[in-house]
Amino acid sequence: MIDYDSPDFWTDLFEVLLKGTLETLYMTGIATLITILVGLPLGILLVGTEKGAFLERSFGPVWVARTINRVVGFIVNVGRSVPFIILMIALIPLTRLIVGTFVGTTAAIVPLTIIAIPFFARMVEIAVNDVAPGLYETADSLGATKWLLIRRVLLTEGLPAILLGVSTTITSIINFSAMVGVVGGGGLGNVAVTYGFQRYSWIHIVFVVVILFAIVQIVQIVLTRIATRVSHRSSTAVLPKDAELTINPAQGVAT
């Protein structure tokens, strides 16, 4: 049990929460960065290698692109359908291989990244699919390379939706990072388990909830604002307010 009247209670609480918050931000930050770096090209690859799409002939014969599409699509679907807690356990050998251990904050980044990449790749796919088809033809008519098409057309036109995807992905990673805490991954999830669950300190839980809520809100507000700013589709630049996908931790990702 926690002694609420102890003179050190508030300083201890502050230190615990600060450490947990920093760990959560660290895990989420690195995982988000890697997720974007891997998921963005993957999402574009998914769209581009579809039948008749712009990368269909970029890998030699058409069957190569079709195969890439099927393989990547399959991996993404598997990644999306395995519940996180199971994925985390299944990935222990890989995590050990990369980080050297499977417990701790850094180790947690591996499963967090791997669950988030397929999710984000699908969001990029949706964003890129939404780019007006006529723009591909226009880029071709101007003699643009595929690389220029991706950079100047797909990424700029898809940017608002991609940013909202990043926002949702970060929210999901924060969500999953709490689960990592249960198995010794550190972060605010760990605070909630060790203080709130094992020692019945409701005050820890309240603070953890408030901090997590604040982080998610800040991420969403900032990214939505940037997305609105880079979108000029209509003169009033309206984006769907609830452009959110939700994740059910038990089932992985649901769109």
């Binding site: 007006a132 006529g134 033809e137 101007l142 100047r152 940017l159 608002p160 000029h232």
Partner: peptide, 26 residues
């Protein structure tokens, strides 16, 4: 050069940038 019925402009780029895109492609 080619012009299209539905204009096919980049919505998120200014019209100056839209024209510059053609120059970059060229």
């Amino acid at each position: 050069g080619m012009v299209f019925q539905h204009f096919n402009l980049l919505a998120n780029r200014s019209i100056q940038q839209n024209v510059e895109f053609a120059l970059e492609a060229a």
